[in-house]
Design a protein around this nucleic acid. Structure first.
Length: 297
DNA sequence: TTCCCGTGCC
DNA sequence: GGCACCGGAA
């Protein structure tokens, strides 16, 4: 048997990764003991495409105010949208509220523990379902976010980056340790991607992995072309401006009050407002004014 | 594939 | 100004 098989995929030593995580992990509030499955679920919603630093204060205030699904469901959707503040992608707040309604009404106020059931809930996709099953219930399931995908692409496959693929789940499942440390391994994989094996300027000098195919291959450049997500001047920015006005007013506002939020392009403003109505984030009252969805409930 | 927020860093 | 940030859904 030869010493080196260049075609064989390199593995990740779960022991050294977990040992590194034990002392290098960030002290994030949703990782502390006593945090409920629902509160972990809330953190995962907020962390979708949003940096930890911006989530932390919102999450702390949120779980203090609405610690359970039923408490969240009992709050009006308008108050939930308001508490979401400027975290971004406010459809997540609406889905989180819907999620709370379903869990309190159909699951006895208990967050489901199996991936299949979690996937049926609003706003929960392939990543979040497994993150909740893993981090809240200790399930041995692959948790694949953009960080994990990048770490595995580098350490295992020797590529700088990787486009999302349906094979990612099996790919990462094969790396999971067989014992009960699987959730810690997944958390460590994500932490490594977030703090060391970063996308732009990886800090390889701090990497705990003794083996890395990307390093062995001389750090080849990436090939995945990422489309630029612009923000300034887009409908997304206009929607944000309109929601800003509605968050600040607990009673319905007139069309004129919304119009001043974006004077640059009236057609774009109308399109943005219409999309907010379609998304169910904004409602129109009988007299033609506008408010956050559920403001009157 | 595209759209959906908002901010901070390089 | 590009770019990344612990994705989901149509």
């Amino acid at each position: 048997m030869p010493d080196i098989l260049p075609e064989a995929p390199m593995s990740i030593d779960s022991g050294e990764l977990v040992r590194w995580y034990a002392h290098a992990q960030r002290d994030l509030p949703w990782r502390r003991p006593g945090v409920s499955a629902w509160q972990i679920l809330v953190s995962e919603f907020m962390l979708q495409q949003t940096p930890v630093a911006r989530v932390e204060p919102i999450w702390l205030a949120w779980i203090d105010r609405w610690p359970t699904p039923s408490a969240t469901a009992a709050a009006g959707s308008a108050e939930v949208l308001r508490a979401w503040g400027k975290l971004g992608y406010p459809r997540r707040a609406k889905r989180l509220h819907e999620c709370a309604v379903v869990i309190s009404a159909e699951h006895g106020d208990v967050v489901p523990s199996d991936v299949e059931t979690l996937l049926t809930l609003p706003g929960i996709g392939a990543y979040t379902a497994r993150a909740v099953a893993c981090f809240a219930y200790g399930a041995r399931v692959p948790v694949v976010d953009t960080n994990v995908r990048r770490v595995v692409a580098r350490a295992v496959h020797g590529r700088a980056d990787s486009a999302a693929s349906v094979r990612d789940l099996d790919d990462v499942a094969a790396l999971l340790p067989a014992d009960a440390t699987a959730p810690t391994f997944s958390a460590a994989l994500m932490e490594l991607g977030a703090t060391v094996c970063t996308a732009r300027a990886p800090r390889c000098g701090l990497c705990p992995l003794s083996r890395c195919q990307w390093r062995s291959s001389g750090y080849p450049a990436g090939t995945v072309v990422r489309r630029v997500q612009r923000y300034a001047g887009t409908d997304r920015q206009v929607r944000g401006k309109l929601l800003d006005v509605l968050r600040d007013n607990s009673s319905p506002v007139t069309r004129a009050q919304l119009d001043v939020a974006w004077l640059t392009d009236p057609a774009q403003r109308d399109r943005a407002l219409d999309s907010l109505l379609v998304d169910g984030l904004v409602e129109q009252t009988a007299d033609g004014r506008f408010a956050l969805a559920g403001e009157g409930d």
